[in-house]
Design a protein around this nucleic acid. Structure first.
Lengths: 158, 158
DNA sequence: GTCAACATGACAGCATGCTGTCGATGTCGA
DNA sequence: TCGACATCGACAGCATGCTGTCATGTTGAC
């Protein structure tokens, strides 16, 4: 995605935007890991805990919520269970599809990460202009929507 | 990165921005794969070819240029060599550090992807307002810079 | 009630990124 | 010239995502 020879100015700006998206994506993932590490978590594990904080859920449901595959969540859940952050609970509606539920340690870790995250986001936002942030978010959403239309068009053709 | 309870409005906007960055990142990667697949490539492989299009380079140099590790590029290069897109060339300045060089097939594949990419970016940019795109890029860069400062601050503390 | 879809969890295998380590090779200063 | 240091390619091992496949469970149409 880097070579930009023979592109129109608009297309060049778009390509530069993509590169910046890649950069911010990497930095944000690193920040998430940094925030969750002190609680013994990673970004993905923190996110799983966040999903089941609202109530016990099956692996498949968590996967759908997070936009990951069942298999991926299954691995994350196994790790979280091994480390005592979640437990498997019998599901009254399904014999084999057990429910993931937060343990006390899991809840405590989640609260800790959430507190760190809140402080971090607040401090970071203070360095940025709120109106500009809003405009950027809006623009990024338009780009995302355009990309999504493009993707669905491509998948229809294939 | 999803739970946003107890966040200030600024911090909430920032978090939503991150989520949108994740989304666009995924969509852009998928688009890159879609563009390069017809030429028998993936995003990473295309990018490696783009780097050595300017001239033969060692694995380590390509890695630095792309922001990946030597090991990762070594694997990609091995695949590209296996499939005939690149070849290893003797390096006059270093006996063991051979240079990656495009083969004719590699150059042809690269040109093909670049053409597809140019058309794709042009069509996509047409659906978007250029000025808005510029503002979004600018805003994203500020966020990226802030994240980078935050990361280097954190690494200094650790 | 039965049988065909569908949902779920588990397993194998793959892709692509990382780190840590090693030995070979280059480079530069004393 | 020689020795410390940096660089390079290679290997092992890990993390985290994916797909494909399978057996089992659940549900709904008939």
């Amino acid at each position: 995605m880097l070579s930009m020879s023979k592109l129109t100015p608009d297309a060049t700006t778009l390509s530069e935007l993509m590169i910046e998206v890649f950069r911010v994506n990497g930095l944000a993932l690193a920040a998430g890991d940094r925030l969750s590490r002190p609680a013994g978590l990673t970004s993905s594990r923190w996110q799983v805990l966040g999903v089941i904080d609202h109530g016990p859920e099956s692996v498949a449901t968590v996967a759908r919520t997070m936009g990951l595959t069942r298999q991926t969540v299954r691995i994350i859940a196994a790790a979280l269970e091994r480390e005592g952050f979640v437990a498997y609970e019998e599901n009254p509606h399904h014999r084999t599809a057990k429910l993931l539920v937060l343990t006390e340690a899991g809840r405590k870790a989640l609260r800790r990460v959430e507190a760190r995250h809140a402080g971090w986001a607040k401090a970071l936002a203070k360095c940025l202009d709120h109106e500009r942030l809003r405009v950027t978010l809006e623009g990024l959403r338009q780009v995302g929507d355009a990309l999504e239309r493009d993707a669905s068009r491509a998948s229809r053709k294939a």
